[in-house]
Design a protein around this nucleic acid. Sequence first.
DNA 1: AGCAACGATGAAACCGGTTACTGTCTATGA
DNA 2: TCATAGACAGTAACCGGTTTCATCGTTGCT
Lengths: 350, 350
Amino acid sequence: MKPVTVYDIAREANVSVATVSRVINNTAPVKKSTREKVLELIHKYQFQPNALARSLFKKETGMIGVILPDITNPFFPEVLAGLDQEARSKGYTFFLCDTVSTNGDSVEQYVRESQYLNILMEKQVDGIVMIGGRINLAKPERELVSEVAEASKRVPLLLINGSLPGESMTRIYADEREGAELATQHLIDLGHRDIAFAGGFKKMSNTLQRIQGFVRTMEKNGLQAKKEWMLDGGFSVESGKAFLNRLLELPERPTAIFCANDLVAIGAMKAASKAGLRVPQDLSLVGFDDIPYASNSIPELTTVSLKCYDVGKGAAELLHQMITKNKVNKNTKIRPELIVRETTACPSRN
Amino acid sequence: MKPVTVYDIAREANVSVATVSRVINNTAPVKKSTREKVLELIHKYQFQPNALARSLFKKETGMIGVILPDITNPFFPEVLAGLDQEARSKGYTFFLCDTVSTNGDSVEQYVRESQYLNILMEKQVDGIVMIGGRINLAKPERELVSEVAEASKRVPLLLINGSLPGESMTRIYADEREGAELATQHLIDLGHRDIAFAGGFKKMSNTLQRIQGFVRTMEKNGLQAKKEWMLDGGFSVESGKAFLNRLLELPERPTAIFCANDLVAIGAMKAASKAGLRVPQDLSLVGFDDIPYASNSIPELTTVSLKCYDVGKGAAELLHQMITKNKVNKNTKIRPELIVRETTACPSRN
DNA sequence: AGCAACGATGAAACCGGTTACTGTCTATGA
DNA sequence: TCATAGACAGTAACCGGTTTCATCGTTGCT
């Protein structure tokens, strides 16, 4: 049972396909009686025009691709939600491209990124959004990155929360350094002097930014970031636990930890609880991102909101501009916000 | 700067487009020297074949659509991950269609569902997966549902965790009733007799199933489910808090609550903590779904795993079968599993 | 030598829409 | 009365691939 086409409709209505098309798109006047006849047939057969054919000719698909590293990380659904709400109102549909690697191999992830980039372009998406992923690599890995820049010459491509070293691409991002400064200053203001930084990957630009903001703020306050209290190696709950346990084994312990993201903070909180430490009385914790977890934990997590939803929404607007006009300001910065909840307090003196 | 096409390649290689196509798809023998010349040009121009044109002719797009109610609910990313991993290995790409309504209006959500259904079909997706949403409506709302059944006649359509009353459609689901039985029996085995049920929407079939499992197990053990301890009205953390507070105001209080999902359980846990109740000493809590939250809370949540990931994976396999052959067993059931963690204990006697 | 089978290739149809171009026919104004 | 604009509609080209069918030259077998 073949799907019905404009030709079928045209034949049965005794008109040409051009007329059918005009009725569908309201693109030129059609006699009322003719229009009605066509409309009736369309309804009768539940005719659905083939979007492939249409897009092939019109050179626009109304599809945009989103490439992200792991949909299971609650950070991403949040920006996706913002992206979606805004994009939907403009008539776009989404490809979701998750580059998560099954075996934890990060090279595999990069490969996947390239694959998706190609697939999306072949599918003629109107635009592409990349969140995180390789665009977060720090300078040394630069070569890995050129094809992203290459792709951006062929299709509107927007980077979220990441930049390509050396390449000037359009991007929208939350200012991670400022966020880190906010968090660090908050801890210092509470009276903490012994503050650790835990989480992330030093190879990634987002981690670097956060570390920079941390170190800088420490120094500005006449404090110094202790090397042995700077732990990296992951963004997950598990790694958060590991970090805390490592910290526990040290001769000197910090009174507060600034975590690279909320998941790490949650992990640290769990490990602390296991070890009999009370948060925030014995240990202050601040996270980063403000994913929904953060407000659902007990105690609720003090954190820095990266305004995921706003970033997503802004991204959709920007991309839309890139697609229609193609004049857009290259760098859009979203200001993060410190959200004080229950995991930070003055250090206990003893 | 127009994108290059097979024609451009063909011209410059002094061959016909047919030959170029053959080289690309390895679909017929081509002389080695010719092949190399073509390949070289493809590389030179970074030629990317237009997938729209190809799909238009081949009548397959390698795209599948996923319709779900709210990507922000961590349940869905989990099944998405399973779906994705499996589908990706079979060469599919995803449309993500989030029907979440901005204003909380559920009618709006149904409208969105229909829209997406149509869009997806027009875009000629190879198949559609629907998770939750209107397929979860209980019988009375049946009329709202016919167009889903209608769509399933035109394109392979698979239902996850939901059924269409009266219509026989292919579906894969975790047995919610069995899951509820597991949870309830667990509480009873611990010695609880006064057990409440909180969360969900009574209009939705998934809630109904869980309630059924709960009530049935209570009765099987000679207990009865108290009407005033059966609260519905949501699947969110907020509603979980509200439920607990309502329960607190009652003259008689349950010693345990079986929550319609993990989010509700988390909410209840938070409200309990605020009210000075210790979990599990003063109140046992069991959730449902086993989203990542569940293992990250303090204390960790006892819950019923719906095997989201497996369900997603199974869905991808099923859909693929529906697309290729079209012979498939209509009902695939996944057995849920009780996961005992830290929020359940024997009731304290007093 | 004769013929089948196969390798290599091109011409053209096809997928299902949209639109440029053309040509009626009618209403309107000079 | 005639020129002209605008409503209405059809023909055919076009978008960029894939595939069928036909052609032609080799090779292999009898």
